[in-house]
Design a protein around this nucleic acid. Structure first.
Length: 304
RNA sequence: GCGCCGGUCGUAUAGUGGCAAUUACACCACGCUGUAAACGUGGCGCCCUUUGGGCUACGGGGGUUCGAGUCCCUCCCGGCGCA
């Protein structure tokens, strides 16, 4: 007996490190194949974090709708779980419009969450519990988790307080953490942009200076004036963290630029490391847009 | 020329008789189950049969000592002070 299966929904994903030219490629492909873009960037979800987060401009969008940009208040934390819900909804909506959903972004964790590669337990953050737990030492947190969910304790990184706190939070609510499913229910074509270290460093440098010109410092100053605390800004990482240090006079402008550039570079390497593990990604050079187009064309063609 | 201080892993630093030798940054490698631009781990003199062993090392040379970045002598280099 033959099982009739619905064809999987096709989703295109453009990934790569910071400053690699993902956004431009995504727009190109969206125009060519009738797509709409779903951003997958944990900082660009926030309103008014524009220059510092390297958000695409209206002009650069070239009329292509971009979703999951500016959906959250920077003063309140957004999360991967929330992203999973919001983005899934948008994805379904794009499909009903008969358009090709194109995920574009550098936050690998968010992409995996959206595609269902990792399933996040439906346990909302418990701020009160977290507040109590952060005061505890890491070994203590580990002991607590071990008591609540020995299974999880076996595989977790026992030195990582953030992981431990979340695991305790989940264990308290559910008893134990469900195992993740490792397969996606979408038909995904993943295209990654790869550059040499020297090229990437060069781009990071140029882009940072360009954004300084565009008024990145003023943006951060303005965000603080509008109620974004320094502490919160530092917690956002990279640009905002170092901008906050600089504006509080914790470091000079020169120090800020030097440290920040290095941090951005480190971050890019972390992104690449995340993506490298995904064997489905087809890697292309930033110059090779034709390759991306032909790959997509081929993949879009109906089978049999 | 005299006096003082100092020369230790890429850089900065700790170490005053048992040291392949501290810490930070950089560098390299890695992890991640609702904070993911966050958060965390390991390596970092060379070699090997790698929970162990060998070799080479704290500016150069010599000495004291069972044993020396660590004490002594001498030379070289840098900083400061006096000439």
């Amino acid at each position: 007996m033959k099982k009739v299966r619905m064809p999987k929904i096709k989703v295109l994903a453009i990934v790569g490190p910071n400053a690699s030219g993902k956004s431009a490629l995504a727009v190109r492909l969206a125009r060519r194949f009738g797509g709409k873009i779903i951003s997958a960037d944990s900082r660009q979800v926030y309103r008014r974090l524009d220059i510092g987060s390297g958000k695409i401009t209206k002009r650069e969008m070239q009329g292509i709708p971009h979703h999951l940009l500016d959906v959250a208040d920077p003063r309140r934390p957004y999360s991967a779980g929330q992203y999973q819900r919001d983005a899934s909804q948008v994805l379904r909506y794009i499909v009903t419009k008969n358009k090709l959903p194109i995920i574009c972004g550098g936050t690998g964790f968010y992409i995996d969450a959206l595609l269902g590669v990792i399933s996040l337990p439906e346990v909302p953050p418990n701020l009160k519990l977290r507040k109590a737990l952060v005061k505890k030492s890491t070994p203590k947190l580990y002991t607590i988790l071990k008591k609540l969910d020995p299974q999880r304790a076996k595989t977790i990184d026992r030195h990582n307080p953030v992981r431990l706190i979340r695991a305790i939070e989940v264990a308290k609510a559910l008893g134990r953490v469900p195992r993740p499913s490792r397969t996606s229910h979408y038909d995904v074509l993943k295209i990654g942009i790869k550059l040499s270290d020297t090229e990437l460093k060069k781009r990071i440098h140029r882009r940072l200076l360009a954004r300084m010109h565009k008024g990145m410092v003023a943006e951060a100053k303005h965000l603080h004036a509008k109620g974004l605390s320094w502490k919160r800004m530092e917690g956002l990482g990279l640009e905002y963290r170092y901008l906050a240090y600089y504006l509080q006079r914790k470091m000079t402008k020169k120090e800020m630029l030097e440290k920040l550039e290095r941090e951005i570079w480190h971050y890019s390497k972390r992104q690449m490391r995340w993506f490298k593990r995904d064997k489905e990604i087809i890697w292309i050079s930033p110059k090779n847009i034709p390759a991306a187009i032909s790959r997509t064309q081929h993949w879009l063609r109906p089978k049999s």
